[in-house]
């Protein structure tokens, strides 16, 4: 187990080194010059030289990369050119919003995705199967930015019951102490239930939007995985023992069919952590995604570099957790044992 963990961390480190190379060379791949890209065509020669010196662009390449690595090893991603804030501070500020949204979206998609998958598998070839599978195919093909806009149209305009922007009404936001950055927790800690309800209401539409594609993917995966397990001899045995259908599925089939579903959940979770870009943009959700989009639009290099490294790290760590969780769901998988 320990050897396995060490090996995995080495592999993650190696991948991160690769990502760091990518984001490092990003600066140099920009046609012309990164300083020119930030300041624009009309910048004076003096201000360009100044920025180049600040970004270290006047030094040899290997020195620049060494310094870059040294800095990120100390969690120093430089400063945003636009806001003048240290990138790491901005990540700290925006990340909780993304995490909150991701958790809500995943809860939604896991709950409904697995249920839909089970129903489809049980009623294979029947109406419910076709219904849930065609809905999920539609879900996969759905441009989520359009889905988000349609939800806003329906539930904020035609039938105005849910808010469509930000994490909290502006008036309530003033009273909130930002202790954890998670509004659901912050409001509860303060005992401010009105604000809590408001925060939940703000979370619903973005969470549904973000959770729809994972929901569809999870439903399809659950169905095919469960169908495979239901064909196994031990399921026949279980039926032969006289167990009821729900007992067979609940006690024997479901747990064994969860390994591939878990893989998918882990992958989706990792992607959502940094992949909420479109959803956050639609709902003006102040998370990492909106922040990164703004940085790309302004060609603000440092936040992009820091953000990409951060998202990649999170993604790999989430996947590591998933791999470790496998052992629980399928004891036959011995982590780190190459022979099995």
């Amino acid at each position: 187990m320990l050897a396995y963990l060490i090996q995995r961390f080495l592999s993650i480190g190696l991948s991160l080194l690769g990502v760091s190379l990518l984001v490092f060379f990003m600066v140099h791949l920009i046609p012309g010059d990164a300083a020119l890209a930030i300041l624009g065509e009309r910048a004076t020669e003096a201000s360009l030289a100044e920025l180049r010196r600040e970004m270290g662009l006047d030094k040899p390449l290997y020195q620049q990369y060494a310094k870059f690595l040294w800095d990120i090893a100390h969690l120093d991603f430089g400063r945003s050119f636009k806001t003048r804030q240290p990138v790491i501070e901005e990540i700290k500020r925006y990340f909780p919003a993304t995490v909150e949204l991701t958790f809500a979206a995943m809860a939604f998609s896991i709950l409904f995705g697995i249920s839909a998958g089970i129903v489809a598998a049980i009623y294979r070839g029947k109406f419910l199967d076709y219904f849930s599978m065609s809905t999920s195919l539609a879900g996969i093909s759905m441009p989520i930015f359009w889905l988000g806009l349609m939800l806003i149209l329906l539930f904020s305009h035609v039938w105005p019951i849910l808010p469509s922007t930000q994490r909290l009404d502006a008036i309530l936001d003033l009273d909130i102490e930002h202790r954890t950055g998670f509004y659901l927790i912050d409001t509860l800690l303060m005992g401010n239930f009105a604000a809590f309800r408001n925060a939940v209401a703000h979370l619903i539409l973005p969470a549904i939007t973000l959770g729809t594609i994972p929901l569809a993917i999870i439903a399809r995966m659950t169905r095919s995985s469960l169908l495979e397990v239901l064909n196994q001899p031990y399921i026949t045995t279980a039926y032969a023992k006289g167990l009821s259908r729900w007992k067979v599925i609940g006690k024997h089939a479901l747990k064994n069919s969860m390994v591939p579903v878990l893989t998918i959940i882990g992958l989706e979770f990792g992607y959502l952590m940094g992949g909420a870009i479109l959803t956050e943009y639609i709902f003006s959700w102040p998370g990492l995604g909106s922040w990164l989009r703004d940085a790309v639009e302004a060609r603000d290099i440092r936040p992009i570099q820091g953000g990409v490294l951060f998202v990649a790290t999170i993604f790999m760590l989430v996947n590591l957790c998933v791999d470790i969780l496998y052992a629980y769901f399928d004891p036959r998988i011995r982590i780190g044992d190459e022979t099995t």
């Binding site: 991948s15 940094g274 992949g275 870009i277 990164l292 790309v296 992009i304 998202v311 790999m316």
Partner: peptide, 10 residues
């Protein structure tokens, strides 16, 4: 190791 749209943005 990153969402496709993020890589595209880079």
């Amino acid at each position: 190791v990153m969402p496709s749209i993020l890589l595209a943005m880079v």
